[in-house]
Design a protein around this nucleic acid. Structure first.
Lengths: 146, 146
DNA sequence: CCTAATGTCTCTAGCAACTATAGCTTCAAG
DNA sequence: CTTGAAGCTATAGTTGCTAGAGACATTAGG
């Protein structure tokens, strides 16, 4: 049995984050020691590793919640898990496309800057006027994290 | 003079967002009509367009605050603006690198899924075990939005 | 066995950048 | 003159944590 600190160390997750995951029901309530400290066994360790890994891949906690509940029912079809992963892939692809456009625009901006005064600064100028942009980098959908 | 609704429409920014920008001091306090409604002139319109455009390019509000104060002093060197833009470019590049790794991993995951039951699901399996991954996609620094 | 240092506990508040809600007032059209 | 849209303020919620306060638990050294 591991204390929360050891568990966090093992999984690469900070202690308050583990407590937070428990609080929002992503991890079950931990067993407690005589002195009321949380104790974790191998199952909890695996579950946390799963969460960590999915977070690293950019899945939201909501998606992870769904994936975890799927993984708890090994006899069911994996279509749902597949769909979640595909949605995440699509999300990542769309972010990639957008970031690529941003990169292009920022590069143009930085390269064109001759280093004079603000009055002639391309950075400020381009920011002031979208029509100076080569690509259409406008905010497409809502985007969060990662 | 535009009302807040018209301004938002013109700039592609939602009304509450404009009020929020005013609240955090990114936009100056607007003039008011006799009936206490906000009224905006061309300067405010340009400032909001600048903000919107910079947000679209992924700059944080803090960076935008700096860029705006730079653009208010046209006689100064543009080195600072250049540095902000370069930092943003670096940020975008690092996010791109990470997202590219994520995409690779998610594709592998999705392609390998044979569509059977959860028990044999590659998606779940890979999430359970990082050593099944081809790339090192571990969370490098902190990352936000965009 | 005692003490000091570290670890853990709960609870609350804060971060970015908004978005949503409630309950009110003002404005423009018919 | 009335109705409905748009505006006002203020507060709370979103996501995924992170930081802090103040109290208890555990462990290592002397």
């Amino acid at each position: 049995m591991l204390t929360i600190g050891k568990l966090g160390e093992a999984a690469g997750v900070k202690v308050p984050t583990i407590r937070y995951y428990e609080q929002i029901g992503l991890l079950p309530e931990a067993e407690r020691s005589a002195g009321n400290q949380r104790l974790y066994g191998r199952k909890a360790q695996e579950r946390l590793a799963f969460i960590r890994h999915a977070r690293d891949l950019g899945f939201t906690l909501e998606a992870i919640r769904d994936l975890l509940s799927l993984s708890d029912r090994p006899d069911q079809s994996c279509a749902a898990a597949d769909a979640i992963a595909k949605a995440q892939l699509a999300e990542v692809e769309s972010r990639l496309a957008r970031l690529t456009a941003l990169k292009t625009e920022l590069e143009r901006m930085v390269v064109q800057c001759a280093g004079g005064s603000i009055a002639d600064c391309r950075v400020i100028e381009v920011l002031s006027d979208h029509s100076l942009c080569a690509t259409d980098h406008r905010h497409p959908e809502s985007e969060v994290q990662s």
